[in-house]
Design a protein around this nucleic acid. Structure first.
Length: 481
RNA sequence: CGGGGCGUGGCGCAGCUUGGUAGCGCGCACCGUUCGGGUCGGUGAGGUCGUGGGUUCAAAUCCCGCCGCCCCGACCA
């Protein structure tokens, strides 16, 4: 690209986002509308997300499996609300091997139905429960309007599917996975998400209840970064997922599903990115430390590069993801380049450092001089480890401060409007109705994000600020992706 | 699907109004210079102008159709 940097956020947030995705080398547009090519740097980021989640799933007893991409059309139709919800965005295969298929195949938009089919065969007895399965897969939803990572026609995700003997157990699983997502977002991605329950309008098609983690992006819009659904017996009944209890009675299972997608990359970009580029949380960054050697002639080059590689080796011994940038470019160019790519920590090493046994560290979470410090080469492991931890918490802290400054309470449509206008999320007593939500959307373009699990309770007798009917709780309203 | 914009070397664009041998910047290759915040100079490679048709002696340029992409709205992880 000919331009040197991204479009400033204040000028055009959408363009800033698009510029950044491409300039930071995360993804490209694909030949097919709405699809994307995830480039190596973006994919490494996804792999790190994947690993951090997978460990958590395994720790809580889940097993990975894989279910097919194609689903018989009739499966989708077995759950009325489910098919109604997904019908508009299905990709359907009608031909195979040169012949028209007897029954069209749907390219999975999500896998409750095929997995439900398998579950019905796998589960016979209460001894088979709970069944805790996860799959890493691609899914396709024919979206009208797409944006790299945030909403693409095909995307990568994980979808967990579990079956339980009781509603309580399934509900507990739903909440456990929501907690895992929130923990991941906070401690790995450095995004302080709000956990909450979706309104009926925003609920997953076919679920009894949907829960979400909502993150605040740099333009204050909300982004649903992960969801966990309590499906009750809806899919169990549609797919005959039954077990024999201790008394040999046949009972339907209670199921859950939960997912987190490559959209998370969009969340990370928008929660942390600035006008110089990406800012990646060290725990997920493909490259945690980049070493930029500095020299002005051949005599200096040798010792400097030698020191750079020696330090890199040292850092590798403590599993720090380090890269020596030995390209034939000016240091200034490299600084800007790695800042664009969001590398959390830059290490500069030049002739003066070689002389004095030091290096210069520059933190990505603090701009310019403020983020620079000097460290001793023989204490480099400790210095780098400590600084990476500081950058990780620095990003979380900045995101939290930003979020808290934009959370408002509102008790009327007027106050809500004001909150949204002044760029914020509004917490409003709400009856959960479609009617109130439609009214709010019309007036403010904001939608209900969730009834937060913390701070969403209302006293008996509290009325919905829009309809005047009894409120079921306080819900956050915000402009959202 | 409605509104707007755009398709010209790898990328960003000019040229189109008024048809006449395809241009600029970045990037790329090579040489020198520079190197602690996006060096400077030189040389060079690279384009069926999205696509199909039409008008014309002649089309990137005018006319008609089609395709695609981006942005803004209604639906969605």
């Amino acid at each position: 690209m000919s331009q040197k940097g991204v479009t400033p956020r204040g000028e055009d947030y959408s363009r800033w986002y698009n510029d950044l995705v491409q300039l930071a080398d995360l993804a490209d547009y694909a030949p097919v509308r709405g699809c994307m090519v995830i480039k190596p740097y973006g994919y490494e980021l996804w792999e790190n997300i994947k690993n951090a989640l997978d460990i958590r799933f395994k720790q809580t007893g889940h097993k990975n499996a894989y279910f097919p991409l194609f689903i018989p059309m009739s499966f989708l139709q077995k759950e009325a609300e489910h098919v109604e919800g997904f019908a508009p965005e299905l990709a359907v295969v009608t031909h195979g091997g040169g012949k028209e298929l007897e029954e069209p195949l749907v390219v999975r938009p999500t896998s409750e139905t095929v997995i439900g089919h398998s579950f019905s065969q796998w589960i016979q007895s209460h001894r088979d429960l709970p069944l805790l399965i996860n799959q890493w897969a691609n899914v396709v939803r024919w979206e009208l309007r797409t944006r790299l990572f945030l909403r693409t026609t095909e995307f990568l995700w994980q979808e967990g599917h579990t079956a339980h003997a009781t509603a309580e157990e399934a509900e507990a699983e739903t909440m456990q996975m929501l907690d895992i997502y929130a923990d991941f977002a906070r401690n790995e991605a450095a995004i302080p998400v709000i956990k909450g329950r979706k309104s009926n309008q925003e609920k997953f098609a076919g679920a009894e209840a949907s829960y979400t983690i909502e993150g605040m992006m740099g333009n204050v819009w909300a982004l649903q970064a992960g969801t966990s659904h309590y499906l009750g017996q809806n899919f169990a009944k549609a797919f005959d997922i039954k077990y024999r209890d201790e008394n040999n009675e046949q009972e339907y299972c209670y199921t859950t599903s939960w997912g987190l997608s490559t959209r998370m990359i969009g969340a990370i970009i928008m929660a942390h990115g600035d006008d110089t580029g990406l800012r990646l949380p060290p725990r997920l960054a493909p490259i945690q430390v980049v070493i930029v050697p500095i020299f002005k002639n051949e005599e200096q080059k040798g010792p400097v590069l030698e020191a750079a590689h020696r330090i890199a080796e040292t850092l590798l011994t403590v599993n720090i993801r380090v890269h020596v940038d030995a390209r034939d470019e000016k240091p200034g160019f490299k600084f800007n380049d790695w800042e664009m790519r969001g590398v959390p920590l830059r290490m500069e090493i030049g002739p003066r450092d070689v002389e004095s046994g030091t290096v210069v560290l520059a933190r990505r979470d603090r701009p310019g001089k403020e983020g620079k410090s000097t460290a001793k080469q023989d204490e480099i492991r400790a210095a780098v480890t400590r600084t990476l931890t500081e950058v990780q918490s620095g990003l979380l802290e900045q995101a939290t401060t930003f979020r808290d400054a934009h959370l408002h309470e509102a008790n009327s449509l007027e106050e809500l409007k004001e909150s949204i206008d002044t760029e914020g999320w509004a917490l409003l007593p709400y009856d959960g109705s479609a009617e109130a939500e439609a009214k709010i959307k019309e007036e403010t373009k904001a939608s209900s994000r969730c009834f937060p699990l913390e701070g969403g309770d209302v006293e008996e007798g509290t009325k919905c600020a829009i309809t005047g009917r009894p409120a079921v709780g306080k819900a956050y309203f915000a402009r959202a992706y």
